[in-house]
Design a protein around this nucleic acid. Structure first.
Lengths: 227, 227
DNA sequence: AAACTGCCGATTGTCAACAGTCTGCAATCG
DNA sequence: CGATTGCAGACTGTTGACAATCGGCAGTTT
């Protein structure tokens, strides 16, 4: 078997490895997470099939997978709906996330390579810039990337899966219009503290701080929801 | 809408609420978890469709859902295979499970009702009997139920989902023939300690003990794998 | 004898059509 | 006039058929 010619997969490789249903799944997920398919709305199979130029079969398979990951819910003979996350359920997710974040902090503090540490510190600085210039959307994008990187650096593939699943649920909740309660400058000071603990290889502190960061994030959510 | 006439759903209610794909999914999952579909083996769509007297469509949808929950993996144009969990991946799962078990212990200790406490103590006693009479398979069934009940009593639906997902992965691993390293009498003394902490409403201790129990369980797995 | 090429059966991937069910509206009846 | 019934349209649930692909085997070539 020849080595891949480039790192970016060509269209050919993409078609050969990914099946139509999985591509459709990714595309629908993107629509949901970007809010183009609003939460609670019914999803029309035929319409999606027409949009993607496929038949309904692959679309149905994709929707089944999305149902399993709790991004949509399905009622028999009525269709599938984009899930609506209540604040109670967001709370449940945060409860789990806090526990996982502590685990992530510990693992990253003990396993991260030097390069990864550099990447984290660089990212925190970028977020600092975004904070300074008041660029909220950029901050949010970087924030997502930050936590994505952290769970990656924890070096536990299954943990990455579980964490991303939960994160998607929270993303769905935020789409209801409730952005974090404005405190994103505060949020980044928390990030800095976490990274500092990681760089110092202080596992317990990194874990504790990352858990607290999740808890603060939850508190900001409640504050926003109350308003 | 009339109230349901009985608690056990009739066949009619079952057909009305559950779609064919979801029923097929449950059935296939059962086959996998009971080991009738051996890990690593290829799954034949037509064969399953014939067995369940449906066409391949519903079977494919069910397999997509099972792929999302990581019980099967799928290779394009080659088919779907029952997943094989390596000991490395089982380790990853245990890492997460320990974190969740601590959360479960805390929550149950603070939320469990009196009835639930009674149920737990009763279950531990039943396990004690099974231990005494050397009934291993009964002990394992009760053990599964014990942890299932615990996560239920934690009162976090999303946590229940996540936990059960992980548990299924571990079950898949155990099917490789590696039962816990014999120490199931020891295991139950750990259960008793956990329940005692819960009854005493000592959240921190219950969490710590349940986490340790998971860690011990992981150690038993390693011991069995080494042999 | 080893390696390559081209076919064959089996199985998956996809599609389009049919059947069943729900929702909303209009007509009917008390 | 309000409630109920029947109908029409749209959509989902399921199926069977067709197309594409894969793995293995036989035949051929060097």
């Amino acid at each position: 078997m020849a080595a891949p010619l480039s790192h970016a997969p060509t269209a050919l490789q993409l078609v050969q490895s990914n099946s139509l249903p999985s591509l459709v799944q990714i595309e629908i997920e993107r629509l949901i997470l970007r809010g183009e398919l609003a939460a609670g709305r019914r999803i029309n199979e035929s319409e999606l099939a027409a949009r993607f130029r496929t038949s309904r079969g692959p679309v149905r398979e994709a929707l089944r997978a999305l149902e399993e990951s709790r991004l949509v819910r399905s009622e028999k003979n009525r269709g599938v709906f984009v899930r609506e996350i209540s604040i109670a359920e967001a709370d449940e997710i945060y409860d789990i996330r806090e526990a996982l974040d502590e685990l992530i902090g510990r693992r990253v503090a003990e396993r991260a390579t030097q390069d990864q540490l550099h990447e984290l510190t660089a990212l925190v600085e970028q977020m600092e810039e975004a904070t300074g210039s008041g660029n909220v959307s950029r901050y949010h994008a970087l924030n997502l990337k930050f936590h994505d990187l952290l769970v990656d650096f924890a070096g536990n593939a299954r943990l990455t899966e579980s964490y991303r699943l939960l994160t998607k649920g929270l993303l769905l909740f935020r789409l209801r219009g409730l952005q974090d309660g404005g405190g994103f400058a505060v949020s980044n000071t928390e990030h800095k503290a976490v990274v500092a603990a990681i760089v110092a290889r202080d596992r317990a502190r990194a874990g504790r701080l990352l858990r607290q960061h999740a808890a603060q994030s939850r508190a900001r959510m409640h504050k926003a929801a109350a308003a």
